[in-house]
Each structure stands twice: as C-alpha cells, then as structure tokens.
Nucleic acid binder design. Structure first.
Lengths: 309, 309
DNA sequence: CTGGTGTCATACGCGGACCGTATGACGTGT
DNA sequence: ACACGTCATACGGTCCGCGTATGACACCAG
C-alpha cells in the first residue's frame, strides 16, 4: 500500500509543457522541434520527461506522425491555461515592481515611434518598451499584461478594452509585381470578383472574413482560396501567382514581400487603426501614452490633416 | 528600443515558485530550506533565479529575516494558484489515463483498511492507493483531484462535495500521563473550564473553534492558549504540561504522542466521521468504495452495532 | 518481397547548471 | 565593542540535458 505524508512537491516543468503544446499543435516532432529552435531528439526526450512527470502517456507516436492520446486531450487545455496564467503572473508582478514602466504593442506596418518618443521625452525616468505583436494577438497581449497599450487595426473583440480610433486606412490589393492588375491606379471589387483569396489558419475567423471581404457587398461569398498557416505563407502564395489578398497599406519597408506590390482598393470601407488599452487601466504612463497617441498618431498615412472620427 | 517578435517562451520554473511560497510562509531562508529538505545557500540561489525569471525582486532580505516585497505580495497568490492548478492538471490527466485507479485519503487515527480491502477484492484489476492527509486538507485534496474519496472528521466546508456520516466518535481530552485528570474514567467541560487550549495556526479557524469548543455551551469563550504551528507542536506543548487539548480518540498506535494519554469527555457533542467524495463524481470505483465504506466503516470505534445516523 | 522514405527512439561525448560545504559581509542587540 | 544571527558568495564535484550520429520500425511502390 502506497501512503505518502507530504503533498508531493509539484514537479512539473513548464518549459516541457510548452513543448507539449507545440507538438500537439504540429502533430509532428520534427517540425515542432524546428518551431522551438531545438532538435528532434531533444524534443523527443523532453516529451518523455513530461510524460514521466505527469505520469501518463500524452502522445500516441505512430510512424505517420503523432496524435494526442486520451490523456493528452485532457491535459492540453489545462496546459495552455497554465502557460497563460504563468505568463500573466510574471507580467503583473513585473509591472508591480516597476510602476515606471510601460510596454507598447503594435502590429506590422504601424509606426508608434512618434508617440513613444513623446512619452520618453515627457517621462525621462520611465522605461518604455515596444513590442511587435501578431495580427490576432492584440487583445490577448493586453489582457495577459504582456503589453499595456496597443496600436493595431480593427476588427477584434473590444469588450474589457478601451478602444479609440486613431485614423482610417484604405485597404489595398496585394499582388505579384507581374500581375495583370499591378501598376493600376486603383482597382475595385469587380476587378477581383473571381480571384481566390486565401484563408489564414492562425487568424480568427472574424479577421479572415474581414480581410477577405466575405461576404462581398452584393451578398455573394468571396471566392475560396487555399488554406495557409501563417501570413508569411500567404505572401509566398501570392508571389507564386496562386492567389491575391487584401490587406492594409504595407510597403517594402514594413514587411511587404519583395516581389509583391499593392494597388489601392476603391469602393470598400477603409480599415481603422485604433489605440487599445485595458478598460480599467488608470496607470499614469498609459494615460500619458493615450494622450500622445491620440495627438500624434492620427492621419499618419493620409496627406490631409488629422481627423478623429 | 527593445522589440521582440515571439511571445517569450514561458520561462518559469514551478519548483522555484514552490520554494518561494515556502520562504514567503516562513519568512526565513534557513527554516524554509529545512522544510524543503535542502540547504540555505541553495535556497538562496533558487530564489535569486526565480527573481531573475520573473524580472522583479520578490523578497526583501533583512538581517532579521525576510519579508515579501510589494511585487512579492502580487506574485504570492498567483504562485499558489499556479501550483494548485498544475497539481490538478496532473492529477486529472493521470486519472484520465488510468480510469481503473482510485486514491483514498484519510486522516490520522482513522482506518480505512477494511473498505480498501473489500474494494481490492471486488476489483482485482483496479489500482487502489491510499494517502494520509493533513487535518484540514480533505476538501482541497478532493477538489484538486489529489484523492477521489476521503474518510475524515467534520467539520469542514461541504459544498461541491458529497458527504455521508459514517459514525459518531466521542471527543476526548488529551493530557500528559502525569496530569491531574489522567486516569479518570471521564471528565466534563467543568473539569477543564480554566485549562488553556492552544490554537493551531495551520488549521482553519472553523476547525480551531470546533476542537477548542469555543464558545463553550454556556456561551463563554474558551480559555486562550498559546499559538502553535502544527499539531505536532501542540502535542509537544501538552507533553510539557503547558496546555491540554480536545481531540478525537487517538491511541498510541495511530499517532498519539508517547507521553500523552486521553480521557473520555462527557457532555459534549461527539464528532462525526464522514466519507466525502466530489459532488459530481460518478466514477465506478468511487461508487464502489462508497458502498463498501458505508457498509464496513460504520461503528468502528463503538462496541455496539453499526448505526448510520 | 525488397528497397526507399519518413517517422520517432537510442547511443554517446560534452558543456553547463546546480548542489553542498565552507566562509564572508553586514546589520543588530547587549 | 563584541557576539550573534541572517543572507550572500566561493569553489569543487556531480549529474543532467543537449546536439550529432545512428538505429528501429512502419508504410509504400515497384
């Protein structure tokens, strides 16, 4: 009979848990190892260690890849929650230790330099960090305290957040340089009515529908395109001439693929660039950054004067 | 300007978090190290590593001991939650992997052998574990899935639990062998009206009040006694003649201090030995154990026939 | 049946991290 | 001023986990 007196000291390595979530996502040790910047044997051992710590086999290895076992299905959501909670605990603790610190997030193609510089000038003692975020990570990054303010584009769920529109941004068509529409002054939806537009798996369905303009204003569904994993894959696909996409007005300095170009898209609602912070956040630096952003980040991409709708 | 692309891989070692909670509890590196079965320098380094991972100073070391810093106050409750969640995730995953396994918890002085043996006989393929629990840990151990059933004594909060009374148990007075009341057939509350009764810090206030019989039936508060950390300390205190206590009918085979003895206490409500499981738990083995416990564990300490109030 | 391909597991040498012992620095109370 | 108790640092030894190379095994095609 096994009897133990002390609550077994928690022996669960969160780094291994993180490895597990990545393997569960890829269902493949080799590719997961690549994503984790390690090697397949090392990852294999890490999963083995994790399984030993948990005391249950989490993955069913087959010769054609890897699947979650029944226990793995139980563990995965809890593992993800543990990782989120751990990250939030660290972020909030750090924030409590350094009230004179703020992290500003932004997404590709948006420039927060002016507002950040203004904040640094007015608060020379403050630590101001900036952080590039994934397209669909703004809300999570705020709520998990990885950042304290975000400049990004709608749409995303805004509850528990305070969101202020900074300016409109026209949507543009992204095509290869040698596409039939490349070089045009502008295009309309009619010009691309039959062009397939890819789905991005990593993005929210809301976000996919918004940027694919699905459904179209006339109510028809957007032409289905292939499913790609990440935005980079989408750009590769476009460069290969297999699809086009609609996006914000990126240029080659802010992450646009070298062999792609953009054409203004007329006749559709522009996207909106917003400043978002946590709804209840009354922090000194957050408030100050709001002020500077609302003042300096309006109309960045427009020739005309700033306007706040 | 610091910009990072990837969500910083969670680098938080839960073993270090565990160390932190223990140091926070003891406010003393040396004693915390002892509790963790390690040495003070090692613990000092572990806390340093944790502070480096979190990115904030968690403890204010002084020459008179150690206190929580402001950041530490923020981190501590989250740390404890992380550890609980991690333990629960592991327990539930293990349970999912081995549906033919059950862990039965019990507290000192209670014997579950009969029911456990019956369960093993009827389910020879099942893994049946037993686990000695702290007095005030029954509810937590159940809800965190460290155990699936518990035999222990009231009182404790019973919501989200299914609790069945197995039998009554007289409360007894615990005194040194050479105490004036030792050897008496029985005593009443009047005999000990002025005897100081210690508080146990590790126990719930509810539990302290119950076993100290505070307030007494006549409405008067129980005489205050010293504050001790753990039950073992209380027994040492009684052995030293500095206090007496009221407890369940332990004997020397089930954890009673060698130089102590017990005297039946008349005229007070007996305590109740109960079987507790999670309210929603419909597990095959749990149900089976309930049956055997209700059948075999009633009246264990009474000469008379079993009875289920 | 047999060779090829792709999967995950294992063998092995090495570097780095962590531990325990011994000792130091430092504020505190007598 | 001295002794005491607390936490920090120095140092050598050990073990753990990584990366490279290789193996075992299932599947597929011919």
């Amino acid at each position: 009979m096994v009897s133990e007196r002390f609550p077994a000291p928690v022996d669960l390595d969160l780094r291994l848990v993180q490895c597990f979530t990545v393997v569960a996502e890829h269902r493949h040790f080799g590719r997961a190892a690549e994503a984790l910047h390690t090697t397949q044997p090392s990852l294999s051992r890490q999963i083995r260690r994790l399984e030993q710590q948990v005391g249950a086999r989490l993955l069913d290895r087959t010769t054609r890849g890897t699947r979650l076992s029944e226990a793995g299905e139980v563990f995965l959501p809890r593992a993800e929650r543990l990782l989120r909670d751990a990250a939030e605990a660290m972020a909030r603790t750090r924030a409590a230790a350094r009230p004179g610190s703020i992290t500003v997030g932004y997404t590709r193609g948006l420039v927060v330099t002016a507002a950040v510089r203004a904040l640094r000038d007015r608060h020379p003692d403050a630590e101001v960090h900036t952080r590039l975020l994934d397209w669909n990570d703004s809300r999570g990054a705020l709520l998990e305290h990885r950042v304290d303010a975000v400049v990004t584009r709608l749409p995303f769920p805004t509850d528990r957040l305070r969101v202020t529109v900074l300016h409109d941004e026209p949507r543009v068509l992204v095509v290869p340089r040698d596409h039939r529409l490349a070089g045009r002054e502008s295009v309309t939806l009619d010009d691309i009515a039959d062009e397939p537009i890819p789905h991005v798996r990593q993005s929210d369905p809301l976000l996919n529908a918004y940027w694919r303009l699905d459904p179209r204003p006339d109510g028809r569904p957007a032409p289905e395109g292939p499913l790609v994993e990440a935005l980079e894959d989408k750009h590769e696909l476009i460069a290969a001439g297999r699809a086009v996409a609609i996006g914000p007005p990126l240029d080659h300095a802010t992450g646009l693929h070298p062999s792609l170009t953009t054409v203004p898209l007329r006749g559709v609602e522009p996207s909106q660039v917003v400043l978002a912070t946590r709804a209840g956040d009354r922090g000194r630096l957050v408030t100050a950054f709001r002020k500077h952003a609302e003042e300096l980040l309006t109309g960045t991409h427009r020739a005309g004067p700033a306007r706040t709708p």
